[in-house]
Design a protein around this nucleic acid. Sequence first.
DNA 1: ACAATAACGGATAAAATTGTCCTTAATTAT
DNA 2: ATAATTAAGGACAATTTTATCCGTTATTGT
Lengths: 141, 141
Amino acid sequence: MFSKACEYALKIMIYLCSVEEKAKLAGLKDIAGAIDSPEAFTAKILQQLVRANLLDSLRGPSGGFRVVQRPITLQEVVVAIDGERLVSSCVLGLKECSGDHPCPAHDKFVAIRDHLNGVLSTTYLSDLKGGVIDGNRFLKI
Amino acid sequence: MFSKACEYALKIMIYLCSVEEKAKLAGLKDIAGAIDSPEAFTAKILQQLVRANLLDSLRGPSGGFRVVQRPITLQEVVVAIDGERLVSSCVLGLKECSGDHPCPAHDKFVAIRDHLNGVLSTTYLSDLKGGVIDGNRFLKI
DNA sequence: ACAATAACGGATAAAATTGTCCTTAATTAT
DNA sequence: ATAATTAAGGACAATTTTATCCGTTATTGT
């Protein structure tokens, strides 16, 4: 469904949301530790999220990353990393597929895509952080 | 959502279902032409589908491929090429995620996965071939 | 039997994704 | 000021996925 990079990105964002109340900033090592991801690769994804204006970063001692101060949907994260494909392309990869000019599978999957887009666009990171803070939801293993 | 190979596989299966009534067997070139896919790569996917017992093949002149004589669901095709991942793994890639031990995104995505599995497991190739035969559904471009 | 045809299967190549390493730039605390 | 810290960014490496090539095997029609 999502690329590995996107899975990491979602975990990063959920994690940063869940800790932003406790500490000001989280560093790369904290983050990679919290979500059990390879540090160097995680750094690249963090860069993408900063460029996409989903995270703020600060360098130097006591630097790190922080979620920008506005509500962020899962869709924004997914699109920032994986692009529009999952959210809008034909499941058979046909460029010209549409309601007017549908591929054989179109009708069957349009409902699934709408369902997926609905969840992605109406679920905010703040909706998911709760369980992590309480400790009954997890981000690794 | 699906890998490229899986997209091709679905198109192959739908195509073969839509022509099986007209001709006995379709050859690699016919198939690759019908779905606009690279021939050599398509051959590899056809092999996988034969090994998965979704297709029968015959060599020699007038040889080719044919869908086995039983109803086949989209799920069988997807699992044959992409494995169980899409159908059963956690969207965040967490091995231990389950209803009892859910990741933060679990609840939001379990419904989508069920929806997807429902469509995949209850949609048969025969449900999709109609439009292609009539010519108002397409498999390339 | 023989030549032509078409799938099979192994090896290889190209591209994309995932992952690592190392230097630089910015910031902080001493 | 200086040293320590941390993100930024470029280059590179490994792996996976996608794609190609070519010789082999089975089958058919002549």
